[in-house]
């Protein structure tokens, strides 16, 4: 899976580092002082590196738990996000990570205990009002679970803190560690989908819709709360037909009355990220489409965005209760 492991000197002896190194005995281990030496240099090409990314094991010093941008959330007042990892095993062509980072290497912060402390602090600061913690902002929350053991580690933490709600956002089917645990009411496993045609064209290495629906169903039957994220909404001539059939395919096997939340997110990318991604993939049809720029964000023209959101909202309401639907959510 990984042929090179970069290891920060500071966490070389951390038990999680050692366990991961043992898991990849064939991988070349390269030590570095700070992971930024490997991850941040300018002369890197995300597209080239995506052919064979390495795993960087690092210590996250600060900025571990951050307030979400205004408007991000699913109903809660106190919203935070955190990323125990940077970058993703999958390769979605619309993913903002390609525009945000120069390197496609995966960074895994092994000091989970510090993330735990900071989540605890955020919770205290809200006087134990319910807080939402969104994981999977700079990565997919579950895809590297067999290696990271992140969920395994964090579930007991959240189980003991009912006011702390966690959203694990994923396109993966790595649910084994979740199924090992009794479900907790303050965790939502949110699965993202785009229609099959978009999945085939743009979501490289992502499991099929069928497999993700199967995984979701297993979790729901085991008592886990499930979220659905149709984000980003991607335009194609026949998007109406594509999304109608996606909603049917995803919702019909589920007990939709038990869904925690459903959200739609229009395609939006900060201008600088969009430009970087186009520079990486000038040959990608998605970016040759019709986009506009407003306030530093690139999106479909407003009328088209509204048309798509309205259509998808109406169509989704045929399948899910209105109380579960959060029509627009700023997210990548």
């Amino acid at each position: 899976m990984f042929s090179t492991l970069y290891i920060e000197e500071q966490i070389a002896e951390h038990p999680r580092t050692r366990a991961i190194c043992e898991r990849f005995p064939q991988a070349t281990q390269v030590t570095c002082e700070r992971y930024g030496e490997v991850f941040n240099p300018k002369a890197q090409d995300f597209r080239l590196q995506k052919r064979k990314p390495a795993l960087i094991l690092a210590h996250k010093h600060n900025g571990r738990v951050l307030k979400t941008p205004e408007g991000y959330g699913i109903g809660g007042r106190n919203n935070y996000y955190f990323s125990h990892m940077l970058n993703c095993l999958y390769d979605c062509r619309y993913c903002f990570l390609q525009g945000m980072y120069r390197s496609a290497h995966y960074v895994l912060y092994v000091n989970y205990e510090d993330f735990g402390k900071d989540i605890g602090t955020a919770l205290e600061q809200s006087n134990n009002e319910p807080c939402w913690f969104f994981s999977g902002y700079d990565c997919d929350s579950l895809v590297l679970e067999p290696v990271s053991g992140f969920v395994e580690d964090f579930l007991p933490f959240f189980a003991e803190r009912p006011a702390a709600h966690i959203e694990l956002r994923t396109k993966s089917t790595q649910i084994r560690n979740l199924l090992k645990h009794p479900p907790i009411p303050n965790a939502v496993i949110a699965f993202s989908f785009t229609p099959a045609e978009i999945h085939a064209a743009l979501e490289h290495k992502v499991p099929t819709i069928e497999r993700r629906v199967e995984a979701m169903l297993k979790l729901q039957q085991a008592g886990w709360l499930i979220g659905l994220r149709f984000d980003p909404l991607i335009y194609e001539d026949n998007y109406q037909q594509q999304y109608a059939s996606l909603f049917e395919q995803v919702c019909s096997p589920l007990d939709t009355g038990q869904l925690h939340s459903v959200s739609l997110g229009p395609f939006r990318l900060p201008r600088t990220y969009f430009k970087s991604i186009v520079r990486l993939y000038p040959d990608e049809a998605l970016f040759a489409g019709n986009f506009t720029e407003t306030g530093g964000m690139v999106s479909y023209p407003e009328s088209l965005e509204h048309e798509m959101t309205d259509f998808c909202t109406r169509e989704l309401l045929k399948h899910v209760p209105g109380t579960a639907l959060f029509p627009c959510r700023l997210a990548a």
């Binding site: 090179t4 070349t28 390269v30 080239l48 590196q49 052919r51 064979k52 290497h105």
Partner: peptide, 13 residues
């Protein structure tokens, strides 16, 4: 230090 990315499958260690 610099870290030349190793993305090629080669026989040389």
């Amino acid at each position: 230090s610099w870290y030349p990315p190793q993305i090629l499958d080669l026989s040389t260690p």
